[in-house]
Amino acid sequence: MFAIVRTGGKQYRVAAGDRIVVEKMDGEAGQSVTLADVLLAGTGGELQSVDGLTVAAEIVAQAKADKVIVFKKRRRHNYRRKNGHRQRHTILKIVAIGDHKADTAGEAPAAQA
């Protein structure tokens, strides 16, 4: 089963067991969060109703993205400005979509193979 959720102004296609990187959310690593803004859900090609459907996730880590350098220059005016920025983000592991939980038993042998 998959779902499309909206968080931080962006939309993500998720399934149970996925890890996604989203905009900064409040919480510590290990806490569970609920994503209530579900736009679409379904299994294969069949869609389901999203009334009251939520996505349960667990915060894996609070991290920072790679540094972005902002450099401004105006020729012949002795104007140079260099600035750096690291955006904060949260890494989430999707635990369940509605009542469909992640299948951890089937996930381990596939990782070893």
Rank of each mutant, 00 (worst) to 15 (best):
Q48R: 05
S49F: 04
Y12W: 14
G84T: 03
I94V: 15
G44V: 01
L40H: 06
R88E: 12
H100M: 08
G106M: 11
D51G: 03
A15N: 06
I94K: 08
K72D: 04
L92N: 04
D37Q: 15
L40W: 06
A29K: 13
G106E: 13
I59T: 05
T43D: 09
K93L: 08
K101S: 11
I94G: 06
A29G: 06
E46Q: 13
Y12S: 08
L47V: 04
K64M: 06
G98N: 05
H89W: 07
I59Y: 05
L47M: 10
A111P: 03
Q112L: 14
A16F: 02
I4L: 06
V33E: 14
V50M: 04
L92R: 04
Q48P: 00
K67Q: 14
V5A: 06
M25D: 08
G84W: 01
K101N: 10
G30P: 03
D51Y: 12
R80H: 12
H89N: 08
G27V: 07
T104K: 13
P109T: 08
H89P: 01
K73P: 00
Q62T: 06
A61C: 00
L39E: 00
S32Y: 06
D37F: 10
H77P: 00
V68G: 05
H77W: 09
K67H: 09
R13K: 15
V68H: 13
D26E: 10
I69R: 14
Q31T: 15
R76Y: 07
H100T: 14
H89A: 02
T90I: 08
Q31S: 15
G30I: 06
S49D: 15
G8D: 04
A16T: 12
I91G: 08
E58Y: 00
K73S: 04
V22H: 12
Q112W: 05
R76N: 13
V55H: 02
G17N: 10
G17W: 11
K24I: 07
T43G: 03
I69S: 04
Q48W: 00
V60A: 09
F2M: 02
L40Y: 09
D103S: 12
G98C: 08
G27T: 09
D99F: 01
V14K: 01
V60E: 09
G17S: 10
V21M: 08
V22M: 09
G45I: 05
G52E: 09
I91T: 14
Q112Y: 11
I59D: 03
N83S: 11
L35T: 13
Y12F: 15
D18P: 03
M25Q: 15
A110R: 13
M1K: 15
D66M: 13
V5D: 04
L35H: 09
R19E: 12
L39Y: 05
A113H: 10
K72A: 02
R81E: 13
V14F: 11
R74C: 00
K64D: 00
L47I: 07
A36M: 01
V60C: 03
A16K: 01
D66T: 09
S32T: 12
Q87D: 13
R81Y: 07
A56P: 05
T7E: 15
S32K: 15
K24H: 14
E28F: 07
G30N: 11
R76Q: 13
V14L: 03
A36P: 12
